[in-house]
Amino acid sequence: MAKIDIKGVNKSLVFVFSNGSVEEYAALLKNRFENNQQLFKGSPVIFQGTGLEQLSHDDVAALQRLCLDYGMIMHNVHTPVRELKTAGEDLFIYRTLRSGQNLHSEGSMIIWGDVHESAEVTAAKDVIVLGKLEGIAHAGCYGDVSSTIFALDLSPKQLRIGDKISRASGEYIKNPVPCIAYTEGANICIKEYRP
């Protein structure tokens, strides 16, 4: 059952969303707004709650627009929503990516070739490079921190998994071994890959 708690915190109205679809929320909000237009008009509004995480960016934007239509002021422009898309098609690339080239996959990305310095790859899930990874790889770019980055020679300037970023130490590793990067808590860990 869709539910929105409305609380007053620090002169702002906090809408706490829980468990519902965008249509239900919209109907609920509209009902509330119509009943007490004076209360809502001109009030700063903050969106919160676990219900938001089930909504897409567009849905949240639609709800925010509804609030704006009733004269409210949106306070948290950066909503804590994370677009949880289901992973799409994996992308297979049979060439080397050079500097300045970028590719995006809605699923995992598998590259049979190298990713050169300052090339960029982003994927909703894993990034697998069967070659040298020197560019920037972003696995789980929609926030899936269980994604991993694998390369036969993992020597990137930067790794990103979900919302986490890690920089290279600056040491040049002479003897490359297959490595895998994954998240552990707030950190990105890299270890030698042993099947």
């Binding site: 050079r98 500097s99 300045g100 080239q101 310095e117 300052s118 090339a119």
Partner: peptide, 13 residues
């Protein structure tokens, strides 16, 4: 070298 890499990529495309 970085610029050359970029240029080669553009030529290839």
């Amino acid at each position: 070298v970085r610029d050359a890499d970029r240029i080669i990529g553009m030529l290839e495309s």
